[in-house]
Design a protein around this nucleic acid. Structure first.
Lengths: 200, 200
DNA sequence: TGCAAAATTGCATTCAATGAGGTTTTCTTG
DNA sequence: CAAGAAAACCTCATTGAATGCAATTTTGCA
């Protein structure tokens, strides 16, 4: 299962991520070249591309893992639980997972967030990743509520909740709000999506 | 105001867009080079970049105009109109504007949509553009309802509505739904966002 | 007409990304 | 443990996007 080959690959991948993030913070994203990242991880530039398809991808290495976690939550939903409740539970859990020190170095998570908020190409990529995850989530929800909920209904619900939280979170973050303020803002946004725009 | 110089620039810009879209349809987005687009518009490759910052940008030439239109609607809101109503009105108008034959060639609009749905880098760019527009829209709404609505509340509302419509529209489109079915899906999605997820 | 500003062009350069072919490292199996 | 297969890695070459710069052409205006 976990032979030397596998472990070595993980170590190289990790080294690439670390080297990349360090360079990004030191000289900026656009300013660091693949060659520099590779040098920092002590591999050839060509090898970088057998681990990541692009320079942007280094930042999003945790996408698949996070998604597996989320889909697991949906699949194991509590019987009889309303869709809306499941969704807030899932979003909340996903956000908490992303800042869990057990999964990430906190400083690294902060650095990645900072980059996603400031570098245009990373912002675009982040939105793209999140969008595909929403599609997957919507499909999973539809399957979990087979017969009770249509695909388009599921999409509308996921889109509404994630959309509200996403825009609010970014606005709160770019404002320079504290951790607690951001969390409050997110909670309030979810609340609005749950109750409906007509009832604001 | 509109001298020869200005008109000629617009003609060149238009020629670039047309040439680009034709090539994209014939050989695909990644497969067409800037050199080919420039040749099709009978300018040098270098000139392409004084009109568009990147190959992706050719597809999104109408962003600013559309945004001006939307912001105008918000600024001239009916006094006493509830936020939620204004928002659906704005979204609806923006969507109609995008398929208005007065603003666009219908075939061209369809081609652009197709590209945005299928080419990953264009999808990412489209999501990015839409995201920035949402931020602007939220700020405009906040200003239009000064004192009655906080910035974060406005963001939550815009995010919820646009998020629901966006995800639903894409899902309906990729399914191969007809124009009417897509429109129905969008209407239903907006309805869900308005009434709130708890009431589905 | 002639001059200034703007637009266009060609040229050189950097860098991301991909492909091909050869070399080293790791794993497997007799 | 000694091949031999497979995986990972490296070097080299190539394409194409994107940018800066200096020269040239076109347009607007006095």
């Amino acid at each position: 299962m976990t032979g030397l080959r596998e472990r070595k690959k993980q170590r190289t991948r990790r080294a690439l991520v670390t080297a990349a993030l360090r360079s990004f913070q030191e000289k900026g994203f656009e300013e660091t070249t693949i060659a520099e990242i590779a040098a920092g991880a002590e591999v050839s530039a060509r090898t970088f591309f057998s681990y990541f398809a692009s320079k942007e991808d280094v930042i999003f290495y945790d996408g698949p893992e996070r998604m597996r976690y989320v889909l697991g939550l949906v699949a194991g939903r509590r019987p009889g639980e309303p869709v809306a409740e499941l969704l807030v539970r899932v979003i909340r859990a996903s956000l908490e997972w992303a800042v869990d020190p057990g999964n990430f170095d906190l400083a690294e998570a902060a650095a990645r967030m900072e980059l996603m908020l400031t570098v245009p190409s990373l912002q675009a990529r982040a939105l793209h990743v999140l969008f595909e995850q929403q599609l997957q989530l919507a499909e999973a929800v539809e399957r979990a509520y087979e017969g009770e909920l249509g695909a388009l209904e599921a999409a509308a619900m996921v889109g509404s909740l994630v959309g509200a939280v996403k825009l609010t979170a970014v606005m709160s973050l770019t404002r320079g709000d504290s951790q607690e303020q951001v969390w409050e803002a997110i909670t309030a946004a979810a609340e609005i999506s749950m109750r409906g725009l007509s009832n604001v």
